[in-house]
């Protein structure tokens, strides 16, 4: 699924006019992290959306082909048509894909550098474990 998602997201955020897209970004690491860590609901929504993108050129272009077989220009037209499609669920599937694609694209250090933003540090993923504070007063109901 990661390979398929990489392909779909790269189609949604391709490089253009010198601005780096997801076709040139490191997608493997974030997608692997996502497939390992995201909730089942989230992953299910994402995978279903990716399948909808792949199998809908018949709806957007009238071509009975999976999007994987489309040429560059036709794929671009398919992506655009799906994003603005009159069927709400098609647009929602694209919104799901774009939310994840945008999260990866906007965090990519090369993209951020090109847009003049400082790169992000890593996500520590840490949290506070057991901890005790000095108790300044024992509980006692105020008279």
């Amino acid at each position: 699924m990661v390979v398929l998602l990489k392909w779909v997201l790269a189609a949604l955020f391709p490089s253009v006019d010198g601005l780096i897209g997801l076709d040139s970004a490191n997608l493997s690491a974030p997608l692997q992290r996502l497939s390992k860590e995201a909730t089942l609901t989230f992953r299910l929504g994402l995978y279903l959306s990716a399948f909808a993108f792949i199998f809908s050129p018949i709806v957007t272009l009238g071509w009975p082909l999976p999007a994987l077989w489309l040429g560059r220009s036709a794929l671009d037209r398919h992506a655009r048509a799906m994003a603005g499609h009159r069927w709400y669920l098609m647009r929602q599937a694209m919104l799901m894909l774009k939310t994840v694609g945008g999260a990866i694209w906007g965090a990519d250090p090369a993209v951020r550098g090109q847009l003049g933003y400082a790169p992000y540090g890593h996500d520590p993923g840490t949290f506070r474990s057991d901890h005790r504070v000095d108790v300044v007063s024992q509980p006692q109901v105020n008279p």
Partner: peptide, 12 residues
């Protein structure tokens, strides 16, 4: 930026 990217209209 990441959310703006996801919510901007269009694709490709």
């Amino acid at each position: 930026l990441e959310l703006v990217a996801g919510r901007t209209g269009g694709a490709g």
